[in-house]
């Protein structure tokens, strides 16, 4: 299987490491109910432990450790293993992350 790194081009999958779902965002204390200890605890529990087990297309973090050492976001079909798109994760290279937690 080959994965197209947006920086390096097509590479064998052995050069990449899988992290997991790119959807979870680190809870923001104010937005996610910092005034309520239960709500913020729930939000963190969800962020740290709970994952959806999708059959179909999902966005995932992959790391090109055997190449350019960049974090990437891949859109992959978990049923067919087809990679639909691979883009740089926010903050790759010298770019600024779009917002905190990403």
């Amino acid at each position: 299987m080959r994965i197209a790194c947006p920086f390096c081009g097509e590479r064998e999958n052995g050069e990449f490491t899988y992290l997991g779902d790119a959807a979870p965002k680190r809870p923001n204390f104010v937005v996610d109910g910092g005034e309520s200890p239960e709500r913020i605890e729930d939000a963190f529990y969800d962020y740290v432990y709970l994952r959806d087990n999708l059959a179909g297309v999902m966005r995932e973090y992959w790391y090109h450790g055997g190449g350019c050492r960049s974090w990437l976001v891949a859109e992959r079909n978990t049923v067919t293993h087809e990679f639909i798109a691979v883009t740089a994760a926010p903050g790759a290279g010298a770019a600024s992350a779009m917002r905190a937690g990403e």
């Binding site: 390096c8 350019c68 740089a88 010298a94």
Partner: peptide
């Protein structure tokens, strides 16, 4: 700015990753 080299003054610059 993409995988490749550039021949400069007394040095060769070799791409080693984004922005490096």
């Amino acid at each position: 700015s993409t995988p490749g080299t550039a021949a400069g003054r007394h040095a060769t610059l070799i791409w080693s990753g984004p922005d490096q």
